[in-house]
Simulated assay, not measured.
Amino acid sequence: MRFNLKVPFAEKDQAKKLGARWDAGRKIWYVEGKDDVSAFSTWSPTPHDAATAVPPKQQTQQSKTYVGSEYVEQPRVCDCPPWEECDKCRPLALSSRA
């Protein structure tokens, strides 16, 4: 059974010596296949940590953050890359709003 850990960067070598492994895809330390995980109890995540692991989809506009059901994706008016502003999309760009 897999047991995820919340290991601070400064303590990663300690956890690794005890047998913890790094999951690069999820960016989390874990222990797998150990019957006694009491040595890792100092790095046991709390239920609150799991709720903040994946931030909600959000969009910032005029100093207000829209999250969840309030999130509205703005329609594309041109074919320029999203990080650039052309004459067509400049009036709708978030960076030009004050």
Rank of each mutant, 00 (worst) to 15 (best):
C89E: 07
Q59P: 01
R97H: 04
T46F: 06
L94Q: 10
K88D: 13
A39Q: 09
S69A: 15
R2P: 12
D23N: 15
P91L: 10
Q61Y: 10
A20V: 11
P45E: 03
H48N: 15
K27A: 08
G19W: 00
W43L: 07
E70K: 15
G19E: 05
S44C: 11
R76D: 07
W83R: 14
S38Q: 06
D49E: 15
I28C: 03
S69F: 05
K88H: 15
Y66L: 13
R97N: 04
P75G: 06
W22N: 05
D23S: 13
A15V: 12
P47A: 15
R76W: 12
C89V: 06
S44R: 07
G25P: 05
R90I: 15
P47D: 13
K6M: 09
G68E: 10
F3G: 02
R76Y: 14
C80T: 02
F9I: 06
S41H: 04
C86I: 14
Y71C: 13
A98T: 12
C89T: 06
Y66D: 07
R21C: 01
E11W: 01
Q62T: 04
D87L: 03
E85N: 13
F9D: 08
L5E: 03
K16R: 15
S38L: 08
T52I: 08
V72T: 12
A10V: 08
V31F: 04
K12Y: 04
P8Y: 10
L5P: 00
I28L: 06
L18S: 07
D35K: 14
A24H: 06
Q59L: 09
A20T: 09
Y30N: 00
K16C: 03
L18E: 05
E73L: 08
K16A: 09
A50V: 01
A93G: 06
K88F: 14
T46G: 08
